[in-house]
Design a protein around this nucleic acid. Sequence first.
DNA 1: GTGAAAGCGCTAACAG
DNA 2: CTGTTAGCGCTTTCAC
Lengths: 334, 334
Amino acid sequence: MSVKIKDVAKRAGVSTTTVSRVLNGEKYVREELKDRVNQAIEDLGYAPSHIARSLVRNKTNLLGVIVPDLTSSFYSTILSSIEQTAASNHYNLLVCNISEDIDKEFKYLNIFKEMRVEGIIIMHEKINEDIRNFIEKLKIPVIFSSVKPMDQSFVSVIVDDYAAAYDATTYLIGLGHKQIAFIGGDMRDMTSGQNRYSGYRNALADHGIKFVHELVRFGDYKVNSGYALMGEFLRYKHKPTAVFAVSDDMAIGAVNCIIDHGLKVPEDISVVGFDGSQMTELVRPRITSMEQPIQRMGEVTVETLLQFIAGEKRTAEDIILGHRLAVRDSCRPL
Amino acid sequence: MSVKIKDVAKRAGVSTTTVSRVLNGEKYVREELKDRVNQAIEDLGYAPSHIARSLVRNKTNLLGVIVPDLTSSFYSTILSSIEQTAASNHYNLLVCNISEDIDKEFKYLNIFKEMRVEGIIIMHEKINEDIRNFIEKLKIPVIFSSVKPMDQSFVSVIVDDYAAAYDATTYLIGLGHKQIAFIGGDMRDMTSGQNRYSGYRNALADHGIKFVHELVRFGDYKVNSGYALMGEFLRYKHKPTAVFAVSDDMAIGAVNCIIDHGLKVPEDISVVGFDGSQMTELVRPRITSMEQPIQRMGEVTVETLLQFIAGEKRTAEDIILGHRLAVRDSCRPL
DNA sequence: GTGAAAGCGCTAACAG
DNA sequence: CTGTTAGCGCTTTCAC
């Protein structure tokens, strides 16, 4: 089949050991031999088998990544950053896309186990008991990126979702808004569900604004749910003057819904999103959004995971990155 | 370290061969033994090493994918489809993101070679002589998805770009437009560069519309270039009444530019995009776009590649999928 | 400096 | 039906 180290050795007139040595850049090889070996490698178009190497070295240089939705701008941007950082550390990515399908997750984790990936990055927080146990037994370092599962035993790279939501809401309040609707996430999610909701509620409370139950709805982070939920708000006699959606996609859905109802953003209703995905810049009006440092998040995720793999770091503490409100054109002072 | 087949064998009181047999679902194993083995596997939390298997079977079940830009909605959607199709055929994806960097491409192809991926999917057409030679020597099936490199020796899964561009332009002509600007791609690209340009020109010619050199600009498929190029058209005394951009991203850029100049789409200028990315639905006005069957494209890419790998198919013919104009809100009859 | 030999974890003849 | 044996392609002692 393909050319192997033996062929190279034969052609260069040396032993496989010597070939292996020049392959791995060891010294203790005479220049002349080194040249002959390199020549043979070139002639034969030889590339060492990563498979065989992995087997003997007990090291695969593989990272497994589980993405909830590859088509999402937010996740694909993190993934891009993760890929870059991994690559520059000589790691490759095995990418898996569970589309919200928990069964798939199991399947993929199992594949990761068989593949002997050195570390696993997970980007969703819907971890059930079974999966949790499976991961624990895996003995492979796992890190969560941009999400934090209920389970305290895992490390996440995230922003302070509570504070971020608090700040976003406060921004709207500072603009003079009092009827601020909230389009939340899944309350089973710790970070993007509960914490952002708490941030919203407490910002309201701290500024003496009455919490109105009717102004709160929960979606699934996607455009359509933002659209549908906004539609409900628009049926009210007393429409909200501002909306805070906990994902940019839902914010875009909300904006579209408002526009499609013949109203204007921000003239009639102000909208704030969350994530800082590039979409917020592409849409008109450009959407003001509570940005997560997406690029940095990918980098830190990989760097931290590699530290775990190297056994350098043993903290079980989350890594909190800074958030920042990117003010664009979707809000106006009241 | 981790538990291996030997441990399972010992615990079940059988030979490794027997374990291997139940692992691979062979018959010729007594029920009782099978149960004992499965029990041992469960007790020990054993998962066979894919590495070792690959080595002996000479089969990795790995596909390498090279994406030019993971953050692009178009590519990430294809990738998602590719992942799904691969997964359901028990193949895993090694994903690499060359951000237009040809050197990276080499590096990645080399990694694919070392990894012994069984097939390679490439999603950009900037293939130079060196890369081409490298691929030829690789002896690994390669397929291009959504693009066609100059080199005739490769198989691509694409739409008929010429016809698609022709049809898109004809649609605009049918609406009564005569000043139709064209925002093209890279003319070094066969499919998205040359063919779409020819389609535009010939549609014009066939309908007796004079080709105006000033109405043609070439970009890099991204939002910003669409924006910038549209800006040039808007400086003309005689502005075009319609624009055909050969990517949805550029179309979005063009629309934004028009809006930012205080004009309206489609009232003042009509815009047609190309690709059928989900963005066209999320933006207001929704953008009329010449759609590629993105989902299907991913499926067909993987299916065809797997046929190549199985040695079933030896055609060097491109696979042409149907295009279709998705009429939305960005065009109006003149 | 260099090579012979053992072994990484698994499968695949080949016997029995 | 089940086990023994020999590799898959590479690295790594351990001698020379």
